[in-house]
Amino acid sequence: MALDKSINVLIVDDYRTMLRIIRNLLKQLEFDNVDEATDGQEALSKLRAGNFGLVISDWNMAPMTGLDLLKEVRADQRLRNLPFIMITAESKTENVIAAKAAGVSNYIVKPFNAETLREKIEKVLVHA
């Protein structure tokens, strides 16, 4: 099944360098419609105002973390089924379990490689 790479993707990270790296990796994967946010609150505003097909979010951000953003997304009637991938340095089992309980679609631990990113995106979009 071919992936729709024309979807709008929102990447969320408080490190602008990381946003730039993920954006460039997505471009290599032919996802050209990419928007950015630097914390959960800004991301939530953009998600509610726009039409996104995928969120790729860091965890450790202020004031709203990626986990809190995920919970807001899953509590929102319009956004609740939006594919949501967490990319984070948080690598404790308790973090993964909390993210899964909150409804994360997939979880990538930093540092990651492009192949892992491609694999997880394909997996969540195919099952979306």
């Binding site: 959960g40 965890w59 450790n60 709203m64 973390t65 990626g66 986990l67 809190d68 953003l69 919970k71 340095a89 948080e90 690598s91 404790k92 089992t93 308790e94 973090n95 993964v96 379990i97 909390a98 899964k100 997939n106 979880y107 990538i108 631990v109 930093k110 990651f112 892992t116």
Partner: peptide
């Protein structure tokens, strides 16, 4: 909960690997 669980990068061996995360999920 997101703030309480935000611990940042773990030292080698303290966190779980991508493979372990995949198995857990």
């Amino acid at each position: 909960q997101g703030q309480a669980l935000a611990n940042g990068p773990q030292l080698p061996g303290a966190g779980v690997s991508q493979e372990e995360i995949d198995r857990l999920l």
